[in-house]
C-alpha cells in the first residue's frame, strides 16, 4: 500500500483483501496476523499521555507531523484490537490532516468489523479514531 495513495484507495484495497476471506475464521486469522505483524511500539512511547484506555484492553497511539502529512504509530495489548489498529494505521497514516478529518472509514462496515467499534467501553477503538482525528485537527491548525 503506497503512502501516496488516497484513503479511498487504501480502504478499497482492504475491502478487496477481505473479500477473498470466506469464513469468520479466515477473517479473524488475517486480523490476528496483522496484529502480530504490527511492530510493537517502543517502550519509551508507552506513556500515560499516549494511552487510550478501554475498559478491557489498552491502545497506545503516537502521532508525528512531517511534510504536511500525519504519521501514526500504535499498539495494543489485545491482538485482535491490534490487528484492527493496524488497519486504521494503514488507512490513516501518511495522509494530510484534511484527509484524516474527512475520512468516513466505511471499510470497517464493509469487512464486518463494526461490532468492535460499538464496543466503546471495552476496547477503546472508537476513542482511538477520535484521537487520530484530534491529532489531525491539531496539526491542521499548525498549518494555517
Amino acid at each position: 500500500m503506497g503512502e501516496s495513495s488516497t484513503i479511498a484507495a487504501r480502504e478499497a484495497e482492504i475491502i478487496e483483501a477481505f473479500a477473498l476471506l470466506d469464513s469468520w475464521e479466515e477473517k479473524y486469522e488475517y486480523i490476528i496476523e496483522l496484529g502480530k505483524k504490527l511492530p510493537p511500539l517502543d517502550e519509551r512511547y508507552k506513556l500515560a499521555e499516549n494511552i487510550i484506555k478501554g475498559c478491557q484492553s489498552t491502545v497506545w497511539l503516537v502521532a508525528n507531523y512531517s511534510d504536511g502529512k500525519v504519521f501514526f504509530k500504535a499498539d495494543s495489548d489485545a491482538v485482535i484490537v491490534k490487528g484492527l489498529v493496524s488497519l486504521l494505521i494503514k488507512v490513516l497514516s501518511g495522509v494530510t490532516p484534511q484527509e484524516i478529518l474527512q475520512a468516513q472509514l466505511d471499510f470497517l462496515q464493509e469487512i464486518g468489523m463494526m461490532t468492535h467499534l460499538a464496543q466503546t467501553r471495552s476496547n477503546g477503538l472508537r476513542a482511538m479514531i477520535q484521537q487520530m482525528k484530534h491529532y489531525a485537527l491539531a496539526f491542521q491548525s499548525i498549518n494555517s
Binding site: W24, Y28, I32, C55, Q56, S57, D77, A78, V79, I80, V81, H116, S122, N123
Partner: peptide, 21 residues
Amino acid sequence: IHPQDMGVLLDNQGIAVRTGH
C-alpha cells in the same frame, strides 16, 4: 492470551462469556 481476544473468538462461535476485571 488477552481475555478480550478469547471473548471475541468465543462470541463468533456463539458462546457468550464475560471478559475483563
